[in-house]
Amino acid sequence: MSHTAELIIAKRVVQRSKRKLTGKDQFWLVFKYVSLIFIWFLVIMPIYVLVVNSLKGVKGVYLTTAFQLPTSLDFSAWKLAWSGDTKTFPGLSAGMGVAMLRTLVIVIQSSIISAIVGSINGYVFAKWKFKGSNLIFTLFLFGMFIPYQAVMIPLVRVATISGLNKSIYVLVLAHVIYGIPICTLIFRNYYEAIPNELIEAGRVDKASMVRIYRSIILPLSIPAFVVVLIWQFTSAWNDFLFAIFLTGGNPKLAVATTQLNFLTGSTNQVYYGLNMTSALLVSLPTLIVYIFLGRYFLRGLLSGSLKG
């Protein structure tokens, strides 16, 4: 279960012996730290590049000095990346700002709906099993692994015929529907760990299924809600596939990732300062969530592997 796995990872391994470190032990310790720090530099490198280059202005960015700190702080690229400027930069229809706010609206709505749906499904799959419920659950899970390309072309058709592709709700809907498997899985695993005695106690008192959910299960669900909300927030924010297929042809519906891709892919501009700043802007919301709620994100990740 993902919940316990995360605790296991976080568990401090107790120092097994108090004996003094021998020379060999010391060598290994130094070796470990040197390696860990080396890897740390590799991991941090792209974000470092994004940050330093976003502070060099729009035009002062060159590949040969990509790793160097800026000589003076210039925030002009931030301003331009956020609000855009169609006059000086014809390649830009709008800045990242509009697209990012639009994405935020989509992502918040879809995460909340996903969490509610996932919670109800998880409750049933964990505590109100019926004949065939395990099979249905497995069929749900398969939906988590499919390459979405296998549904994409008809999905675009459905969206066009229904007229949904003219609003951002097409993406809200896509994220909710294709998020059902993972959200259900996270909640189901979480509820499996809640003792059945609690449910039985409710039953003895003749409480209905809904009542038990409301008064017993729901108050215990907050950690699972946090996991699912963060998971859905991150994956919907980072989604490119659904966005490009369902709204890719319509700049008025561009989301953060498609806008960034459009911006960096435009052939008539090569302002790397702008590209880097825009990439940083797109990364910030999920990074901030990760910084503050990383361990919940880890639980979501481990659930995604089904075990852990």
């Binding site: 990872i9 976080a10 401090r12 391994v13 107790v14 120092q15 310790l29 470990k32 730290y33 860990l36 890897i39 740390w40 991991v43 941090i44 792209p46 974000i47 590049v49 994004l50 590949l63 990509a66 991150t234 924010w237 980072n238 490119f240 953060a256 990732t257 960034l260 891709n261 960096t264 790397y272 590209n275 880097m276 825009s278 990439a279 940083l280 797109v282 990364s283 999920t286 990074l287 969530v289 990760y290 990383g294 994100f297 880890l298 990740l301």
Partner: peptide, 30 residues
């Protein structure tokens, strides 16, 4: 278990929170 494990662990995992499109932009350049 090593001193500073939490620090390294959370740094090592942060790339999973970032979109491929944003990182693609960086690597396209670098």
């Amino acid at each position: 278990g090593i001193k500073g494990e939490g620090f390294f662990r959370s740094f090592y995992l942060y790339p999973m929170a970032i979109s491929f499109i944003a990182m693609g932009t960086v690597f396209n350049w670098l």
